[in-house]
């Protein structure tokens, strides 16, 4: 039980379940499977971007260009599709573009030693600018139906993209827990100098983190484009901040070395679900953003109090223990 309360993921999940129950009691339509599935469906873009961001935050970095990277990948996807490329090739091009965009961040941060916030703030501008240059500034419209179809596929009433994202999440969770190379992200973020002295490839670990952030942003772009069917110039605008918030909410520490993929995903799910729930609760739309902000603060604050209370308890127990031992 104590272990459960101690992990942020559990606390956020608990709060999410609580919100679901309250919303469902208020508006029984919410309990219909379709509503829950649609919330999963709507959160996929943010879940994927947040997962990529998690690698960077684990290494004690920050990437504020992930939204722009997703936008750029969506533009590559849309443009190649409208040029008549088959869906598979276009998706590959988009993923490649996102990965390259991530690799550019990685190069700047690890080899040119530009501070991450500056580097990615710069590329945020560059990638958003590139979107306009590629498209001449117009929305990408009239995408072929073939890109929208995967969004309509499903199994057991759950859309294909939800399954795919869950599979990717499970894979990421397994790898970060069990694969030695992936543990480097934690080691580097926890203590960069220590990791270096142990002989870990610190720079290449950071390089991989930023590159993965780009790849995941491109995955998000594919889902985004399939679900929405057009690419506007402000596609995924502001998602970098939402992704960071999702990570913090899900227990990924901004000081590096702490956090899990499941936590980041739950944080993203929570941040997205709030907007849908407020509609089921009949809260006027004007309140939407304010409510989302309040809930974020409440969760982080409650989590902080619970943790410090537990920490205090632990210390007191230790002091008592020590005193007993000495007597």
């Amino acid at each position: 039980m104590k272990h459960l309360v101690r992990s942020r993921e559990a606390l956020v999940t608990l709060l999410l379940v609580l919100l679901v129950v309250v919303t469902g009691l208020f508006n029984p339509n919410f309990f219909k499977a379709a509503s829950i599935v649609e919330i999963f469906n709507a959160s996929l873009t943010l879940v994927l971007i947040a997962l990529g961001e998690m690698f960077v935050i684990l290494t004690r970095g920050i990437d504020v260009s992930v939204g722009a990277t997703a936008g750029l990948a969506a533009v590559v996807l849309g443009t190649t599709l409208n040029l008549g490329w088959p869906v598979g090739a276009a998706v590959l091009a988009a993923v490649l573009a996102g990965t390259l965009a991530g690799a550019l961040n990685a190069f700047g941060v690890t080899f040119l030693r530009v501070p991450p916030i500056i580097m990615t703030l710069g590329t945020l501008g560059i990638y958003r600018g590139l979107m306009r240059i590629v498209t001449g500034g117009s929305w990408i419209e009239n995408l072929p139906q073939s890109i929208k179809e995967p969004n309509l596929w499903g199994f057991l009433g759950v859309p294909f993209f939800v399954w795919a994202t869950l599979a990717l999440l499970a894979l990421t969770a397994f790898v970060t827990l069990r694969v030695r190379l992936a543990r480097y992200f934690y080691a580097v973020g926890d203590n960069e100098t220590g990791a270096y002295l142990l002989g870990l490839p610190v720079r290449w670990t950071q390089f991989a983190a930023y590159t993965l952030a780009g790849t995941f942003a491109a995955f998000a772009a594919v889902v985004f484009t399939s679900q929405i069917g057009f690419v506007s110039m402000n596609a995924a605008d502001g998602f970098e901040l939402k992704a960071i918030a999702a990570n913090v909410l899900g227990g990924v520490s901004l000081t590096g070395g702490v956090g899990t993929p499941v936590g980041a995903a739950i944080g993203a799910l929570f941040l997205t679900a709030v907007h849908s729930m407020l509609i089921f609760l009949g809260v006027p739309g004007i309140w939407d953003n304010a409510f989302a902000g309040i809930i974020l603060l409440v969760v982080v604050y409650v989590d902080y109090r619970v943790r410090s209370a537990l920490e205090l308890q632990r210390r007191q127990a230790r002091i008592r223990g020590d005193a007993g031992g000495g007597a």
Partner: peptide, 17 residues
């Protein structure tokens, strides 16, 4: 709020609610 992803999510919830 001119966010395409939200422009799909919000009416989805609306239709279901």
């Amino acid at each position: 709020h001119e966010d395409a992803q939200k422009a799909v999510q919000v009416p989805t919830a609306l239709f279901q609610a």
